[in-house]
Amino acid sequence: MAKKKIIPEMENSNDNEKQNTLKVEIISNKSLFEILGDTKRVWKIILVLFILVFTIFIALTFVTIAIKSIYPYNDIKINALGATTMQNEDKEVIYWLFNTVDLWANSGIKVKKGDILTIRASGRSHTAIHHLVDDAENNKELDDKWVSTDGEGKMDSPRDKIRAQYRIFKNKPQDALLMQVVPDGINIKDTTTDDSYRIFEYVSNNLQPRDNYYYIGKEREDLLIHRNGILHFAVNDIVLTDSVIEIMQRFAKDNSGKSEKKYGGLEFGPYPDSLRTNTSIKNEMTYYKEKHYYNAWFDDNVGSFLIVIERKKSK
């Protein structure tokens, strides 16, 4: 830009002659030339330009991240326990593989009070690997069928109908999918004797609120979560804690005369010693109680479910 400098210069050469000399000097782009003449200033300007550009870039990064968090589109995250979360604007879809042998397997999926979940799963499980192998070896139709998450297809024997009342969810199908919300920081497997988070029906003290246990079965739509915590999964079977064993043994004792079957229909198996003792004092139940083997009837399960959870985002 031209810089104009008007320098009035008055000269009186002669008193008699009034002569005004006006000198106008116009120099174009003077300030720019001053800057260009000073190398340090030039490099300072260049440095400032780059800092400005970098700052704008960082600001745009934060703006983009903010926009993406508000409007995620197929954003994928994984957690430390293998759960994969795919986010969209209005919902999240989480995939996790659950092996039916695990009792209250920790999925690492965090939920909050008020979350609304839709849960479905694919896959099949079998309740007793030894029965499966025996039937397969003998080319026999399976006594215990491969079942899906609702436990359908299983033929309930009279023994199973009696045992059904001791399952995690009483009288619900065996091997149906169940879910529990466990508070953060609690590792169920660390507690060898505390049954607080293992069983549902038969703990008389330290009972966790029942509304944190959920029966999933085939599927659950729009399931409302009642507290913050982490999702744990299990199939519906009997957890052989001391209290449950005592209750079953009491039932067996009270009903031993009423049924043709052993132990009032509960049909306990033998104690795993060389004699295979099977009396009311010594049988498989006494062994499980001695060893605190509470998940004995889960360890013979075979099969996995791929669990898919949809979580609606609150607006």
């Binding site: 009034k18 000399t21 006006l22 174009s28």
Partner: peptide, 18 residues
């Protein structure tokens, strides 16, 4: 500027191309 002045004034414009 120089309307009513004598014309002994000088104007120097250095508008050479940048």
């Amino acid at each position: 500027i120089l309307k009513e002045k004598n014309s002994d004034s000088t104007i120097s414009i250095d508008d050479s191309h940048f």
